[in-house]
Simulated assay, not measured.
Amino acid sequence: MKLDQLKKGFWGYKKASVYEYITMMEEEFSEKLAEKVTEQKTQEEQYRTQIAALEKELSRVRKELEEQKKEQMNVASALMEAVRYKDELQQEAQAKMREERAEWEKKLEEGAKELNQYHKQIAKVREMVCGMLQSMDAQSEEVEMQIRTVKSACPRHNMTLFERNPTEEA
């Protein structure tokens, strides 16, 4: 029923027709309102379902984030431990290198001392050999002088023992 379909009377619209129109309008609005309420309930249910799904997804993402944070902390911790271990190894290697260098320097020093002692001993032996050779040379000259003196003092026939035979020399 439309507003122009209302029945008119002498003093205006008839009350029954107006009530009927109002009732019809009320029913129409009630139906529309009921549809809207049903629609809103459906949307609300959809939104609640969507919210629940989003909350579940949010919870899952938070767990993943926490796991990633833990992994990052583990990686950072492992990295720091590796750096510390590397530093320790470097310090140990440097200490060992210093020890070995000190050992080699000590051995080198000992070897140099030993070599120096050998040089001194060789110099002493040279000195001694030179002295012996000079002494032997002086003695041989002295003996030679004595032989000449004896030869010149003795007659020729008595010196046969000291003469050399030219055939024996070859």
Rank of each mutant, 00 (worst) to 15 (best):
M1A: 08
L3N: 03
K8P: 01
F10T: 09
W11I: 12
G12H: 02
G12Q: 00
G12M: 00
K14E: 14
K14F: 07
K15E: 15
K15A: 15
S17H: 03
S17F: 02
V18R: 03
V18N: 03
Y19H: 13
E20K: 08
S30P: 02
E31T: 13
A34M: 05
K36Y: 07
K36D: 06
T38V: 05
E39N: 15
Q40F: 10
Q40R: 12
Q40M: 11
Q46H: 03
Q46V: 00
Q46N: 05
R48D: 15
Q50R: 14
Q50H: 10
E55D: 12
K56W: 00
E57H: 03
L58G: 03
R60V: 01
E64T: 00
E64Y: 02
E66A: 06
E66P: 00
K69H: 12
Q72E: 14
M73P: 00
N74R: 15
A76Q: 09
A76Y: 03
A78Y: 11
L79A: 08
V83D: 11
Y85M: 12
D87R: 13
D87M: 10
L89C: 11
Q90N: 15
Q91V: 09
E92S: 12
A93D: 04
Q94H: 09
A95E: 08
K96T: 13
M97K: 15
R98I: 08
R98P: 00
R101A: 14
A102P: 00
E103W: 07
E105I: 04
K106D: 08
K107R: 12
L108Y: 12
E109D: 08
G111T: 11
A112S: 07
L115V: 09
Q117F: 11
H119K: 13
K120F: 04
K120Q: 13
Q121L: 07
Q121P: 01
R126D: 09
E127I: 01
E127Y: 03
M132R: 03
L133M: 09
S135H: 11
M136W: 12
A138M: 09
S140Y: 10
E142H: 07
V143G: 00
R148D: 05
R148P: 00
T149S: 15
T149I: 14
A153W: 08
C154R: 04
C154Y: 03
C154F: 10
P155N: 04
R156D: 15
H157N: 08
N158C: 14
T160N: 15
T160V: 13
T160C: 13
T160F: 12
R164F: 08
E168P: 02
E168V: 11
E168L: 12
